[in-house]
């Protein structure tokens, strides 16, 4: 299985998706020095500089989340059916390997690749902050939870790729992510403020279908100290129940659910790949 893991990582490094994200992130990296640049150009209090650095860390973590997820989706969506169609698996499948070894090898390969990338990007973010002010650790605290994003989207895309081509697998995964984002960022406030039960149920359901909001809260809990004062305060209206719905607390069970969710999709993909004809 480790041969498949290594091969998958070698392949990933040569993919245009990886090179594309590398170029975009290199371009964005310059922006991480904006707080210092603004302070030097416009002056400003140490407090406002600190606020700028905090926001930059928050955005940096968000960008790592986003690009790791995009990379995982693009790499996983073409891992099975597209490789069969292109003939890459034709000479590998007859080798004395169980299909689950190939599937898990690919999953592990992409995940390790995404972990390595996120580590590099987080290090770069940390270096940028350390160069501008003192070294900070919040991004490292958030990293294990940030990694759950590419794991979740990558696993879903890989499961879909076990029976569908790369464009379809990536399209459905992105659509699932968009649905979860829409439910959390748009439907949740509407459902809370107007107290629409049906919408609230829909938002809760969306968290079960794609637990992106759960991941968001897990990451947020690690970078809460960076959030500018007043931003996360309770709105002046609404009952306790509504406020709770708007900003649910983080539980250990959330993490358990995310683990079970990953396992579910992994098993779905494994089951389909195990049972399907390959030709």
């Amino acid at each position: 299985m480790w041969t498949i893991v290594m091969l998958t990582m070698q392949e990933a490094m040569r993919r245009r998706a990886f090179l594309g994200t590398l170029i975009i992130l290199a371009a964005l990296y310059g922006l991480t020095f904006l707080p210092k640049a603004f302070q030097q150009a416009l002056g400003g209090s140490p407090k406002s500089f600190e606020l700028g650095v905090n926001l930059m860390i928050l955005f940096g973590v968000d960008i790592i989340k986003f690009f790791s997820s995009v990379l995982a989706i693009l790499l996983c969506a073409g891992a099975i059916t597209s490789e069969i169609e292109r003939g890459y698996l034709a000479a590998i499948l007859p080798r004395p390997l169980h299909r689950f070894e190939i599937f898990l090898g690919k999953w592990l390969g992409v995940m390790l690749f995404c972990v390595a990338n996120a580590l590099v990007w987080t290090t770069l973010l940390w270096v940028s902050v350390a160069l501008q002010t003192k070294p900070r650790a919040e991004m490292w605290h958030a990293l294990p939870y940030v990694l759950l994003y590419p794991m979740m989207y990558g696993t879903v895309a890989l499961a879909l790729s076990s029976f569908s081509s790369a464009p379809i697998a990536s399209m459905f995964t992105v659509a699932a992510g968009a649905f979860a984002y829409f439910a959390d960022h748009f439907l949740r406030p509407i459902a809370a403020f107007f107290d629409v039960k049906l919408l609230q149920q829909l938002v809760s359901l969306s968290e079960w279908v794609v637990p992106m909001a759960v991941l968001k809260r897990l990451v947020q809990a690690r970078v809460d100290t960076l959030v500018p004062p007043g931003m996360n305060d309770a709105p002046p209206v609404g009952s306790e129940v509504v406020l709770h719905f708007l900003n649910p607390p983080v539980h250990l069970l959330d993490l358990v659910y995310v683990g079970a969710y990953l396992l579910f999709w992994l098993l779905v993909g494994l089951f389909i790949f195990q049972r399907r004809d390959v030709q």
């Binding site: 091969l7 392949e11 034709a90 000479a91 080798r95 004395p96």
Partner: peptide, 30 residues
């Protein structure tokens, strides 16, 4: 599978590998 070798009709090898690396990969898989 341990006892058979197969040359498919339609196949694509990882073209970034050299001939030797490709054989090494398949040897490890075998």
């Amino acid at each position: 599978k341990k006892r058979l070798g197969f040359l498919p009709e339609k196949f694509q090898f990882h073209d970034f590998l050299t001939a030797e690396e490709l054989l090494r990969l398949h040897g490890r898989l075998a």
